[in-house]
Amino acid sequence: MSDLIVTVMKVGYLALLWLLVLTAIGVLRRDVFGTRVLAHGSVVRKSRPDGGPRPSRRAARGGPTRLRVTAGPLNGTTLALGSSAILIGRAPGSTLVLDDDYSSNRHARLFFHDGRWWLEDLGSRNGTYLGSAQVTDPVPVETGVPIRLGQTVLELQR
């Protein structure tokens, strides 16, 4: 083969090799899990990738519509409430991923049942508090009552 073809093949091969590397890095960049910030300053409804039922009309009846972080590392973050349960913890798979050294991987769970929201501690190391009482069994949560996990404080808001 002529030198030209050999050279072209050589450089082409190297380019292909780097294409593999760069594609890999591209995949790696996209591959950040957990929650993502949709918008600042406004409430955007949580996306439902599973195509589950739309949140019921209970919001209109005066129930809470969002979960807000009022103290701790994620202060100011809000999460729109749907009808599915919310898992709170440091694990990347959680609905609300905490960045808090004092919380457990899977710390607590909020779920909707019988027309109201319930808080359940998932055996966390440092406990979950509703108001000033430690949560041992699932307890109903009223709007505006602080929920404390580690250094994070959350509350349900209308």
Binding site: T35, R36, G41, T78, T95
Partner: peptide, 16 residues
């Protein structure tokens, strides 16, 4: 600063 977070749709990555 308030922010709204939503869970990201998890890609299985099989196409990639």
């Amino acid at each position: 600063m308030a922010a709204t977070v939503a869970p990201v749709r998890i890609r299985t990555g099989r196409a990639a």
